[in-house]
């Protein structure tokens, strides 16, 4: 009886080790080879709307409760890009922070009202301990995100 319990326990441990492998692939296979820099997208986001791009970067932030979104570091200071599936079809692992993400998908705009924009800027000010310029929120704001079709998350570049 004891042997059976030990045997079952070992099977569970082996299966468990496969659950959390080093590289995670989500959604479809990534086909685009050219990497588009986050700075290029943020400079002229309108040019990238609904275009399929591949972006890469270390994960600097994300949803720690449900894994609905992540944000990757840009190639330039102070820039990051949020990767959030429009319909919530891609859920990210919760231990994402500090890992390297490769994502393919389309850029889409998110329109914030003035009140939403103020809240967003206040949120940024709180996490970055910096002053906010509420002028930016006047008349609302547009954020740009990538809705991924495929994502690979690995430990390092």
């Amino acid at each position: 009886m004891q042997r059976r319990i030990i045997f079952l326990f070992m099977i569970v441990l082996i299966l468990g080790s496969f659950l959390f492998s080093a590289e995670v692939t989500l959604g479809e296979k990534i086909r685009t080879e050219k990497v588009t820099q986050v700075s290029e997208i943020l400079e002229k986001p309108g040019d990238f709307i609904d275009k399929i791009v591949r972006v890469e970067g270390y994960i600097v932030d994300g949803c720690m409760h449900e894994g609905t979104w992540i944000a990757i570091a840009g190639d330039k200071d102070f820039q990051q890009l949020t990767i959030w599936h429009k319909e919530g079809k891609i859920i990210f692992p919760l231990d994402h922070k500090g890992k390297y993400a490769i994502a393919e998908g389309a850029i889409y705009p998110v329109q914030l009202t003035e009140a939403q924009a103020i809240n967003w800027l206040k949120h940024l000010a709180a996490i970055h301990t910096q002053e906010i310029d509420l002028e930016k929120a006047k008349g609302g704001m547009t954020l740009y995100r990538l809705s991924p079709t495929g994502v690979i998350i690995k430990d390092a570049k």
Binding site: Y58, V60, D61, A73, G74, D77, F78, Q80, K97, G98, Y100, L124, H128, T129, Q130, D155, A156, K157
Partner: peptide, 26 residues
Amino acid sequence: YKSHFRPSVSRLQIFLESGVMDIDMY
């Protein structure tokens, strides 16, 4: 060390194999 990133003027993030280091430059 894996990489580093500056999300804002007052913050720096350093990605390490052992975790993420968040630096308040201020």
